[in-house]
Amino acid sequence: MIHTTVFASALTSVPCWLINEGQVSYAVALEVQRRLVQEHRENPDLPDVLILLEHPPVYTLGQGATLDFLKFDPMVTNWEVHRVERGGEVTYHCPGQLVGYPILNLRRYQQDLHWYLRQLEEVLIRALAVWGLQGDRVSGLTGVWVEGRKVAAIGIKVSRWITMHGFALNVCPDLQGFKEIVPCGISDRPVGSLAEFIPGIDLDRVRPVVAASFAEVFGVELIASAWPK
């Protein structure tokens, strides 16, 4: 069981900066990620980073995503839409969803993208277990499901073994925005949230649990840090 007030793994003292933010526009967060990745490529000795935040309503598409999974025309809409360098299809971010952006040098862990994806899933599975929820994997797909409902999406980009983008955990969001897309290109599996299983849950309760789970899975010590200027 993960203790929600402890962010460090007992087995290591490898530092990782933890940046806890509230609601940040997608464009601003993307610019910060890209800048951090560049800094870590230029100086691989910099500590890793985990950013936890929320976004205002926004749709994002992976670099190879098809527009067929949008139920609206992105050229004539009031929705904010971004095509970015991560893998995967279209997804939706909004308040009440905890988004995590790890900036990790995988040379410190394993230089294996499949391993990294499974580790991100494991972070969320262990976090859900704190509330007695069983997080499941689905063979051939990426993400985490609870009772057949997808509660977490994952999409990453890795450049010279430095990671960006990450995971989105539906804690207590308004799920209506997902009706405008085929989430992650999966039409036969519904999207869900933790609030459907744990009434009254909010991000303030989930943030420290996810942080502690991340520290445990990756074997790091999380050190509180400010939003990059």
Rank of each mutant, 00 (worst) to 15 (best):
L52R: 08
E54Y: 12
P56E: 15
P56A: 13
V58F: 02
T60R: 07
T60W: 05
T60I: 07
L61W: 08
G64W: 08
G64N: 12
A65M: 07
T66R: 07
L67H: 02
L67N: 07
D68R: 12
F69Q: 15
F69Y: 12
F69N: 13
L70F: 07
L70I: 06
K71G: 11
D73F: 15
D73K: 10
P74C: 02
P74V: 02
V76A: 12
N78I: 14
N78A: 13
N78H: 15
W79L: 15
E80W: 06
H82E: 13
R83N: 03
R83L: 05
R83E: 02
V84C: 14
V84A: 13
R86D: 01
R86Y: 00
G87A: 09
G88T: 12
G88F: 11
E89G: 13
V90I: 06
V90S: 06
Y92P: 02
Y92S: 03
P95A: 09
G96S: 01
Q97L: 00
Q97K: 00
V99D: 01
G100C: 04
G100T: 03
Y101S: 02
P102G: 05
P102L: 04
P102H: 05
I103T: 03
I103V: 08
I103F: 15
I103K: 05
L104F: 02
N105W: 04
R107F: 14
R108P: 01
R108F: 09
R108N: 04
Y109A: 03
Q110G: 10
Q110D: 12
Q111E: 06
Q111W: 05
L113Q: 10
L113E: 10
L113G: 06
H114Q: 07
H114C: 10
W115T: 08
W115V: 03
W115M: 04
R118F: 11
L120V: 12
E121R: 01
E122L: 08
E122F: 14
V123D: 08
V123R: 11
I125M: 13
R126F: 13
A127C: 03
A127Q: 03
A127F: 02
L128G: 04
L128D: 05
V130C: 05
V130F: 05
W131P: 00
W131T: 00
L133E: 02
L133G: 09
Q134G: 07
Q134M: 13
Q134P: 14
G135Q: 01
R137P: 03
S139F: 15
G140K: 09
G140S: 05
G140H: 08
G140E: 06
T142K: 07
T142G: 13
G143C: 04
V144H: 08
V144L: 08
E147K: 12
G148A: 02
G148H: 03
G148I: 04
K150C: 01
K150Y: 01
V151K: 00
A153C: 05
A153M: 12
A153H: 15
G155R: 14
G155W: 09
I156K: 12
I156C: 09
I156T: 11
K157D: 15
K157S: 15
V158C: 00
W161E: 08
T163R: 14
T163C: 14
T163G: 11
T163V: 08
H165I: 10
F167R: 14
A168Q: 07
A168I: 01
L169N: 07
L169C: 12
C172H: 10
C172T: 15
D174I: 11
D174Q: 12
G177N: 06
G177A: 10
K179M: 09
I181G: 00
I181Q: 02
G185P: 10
R189P: 03
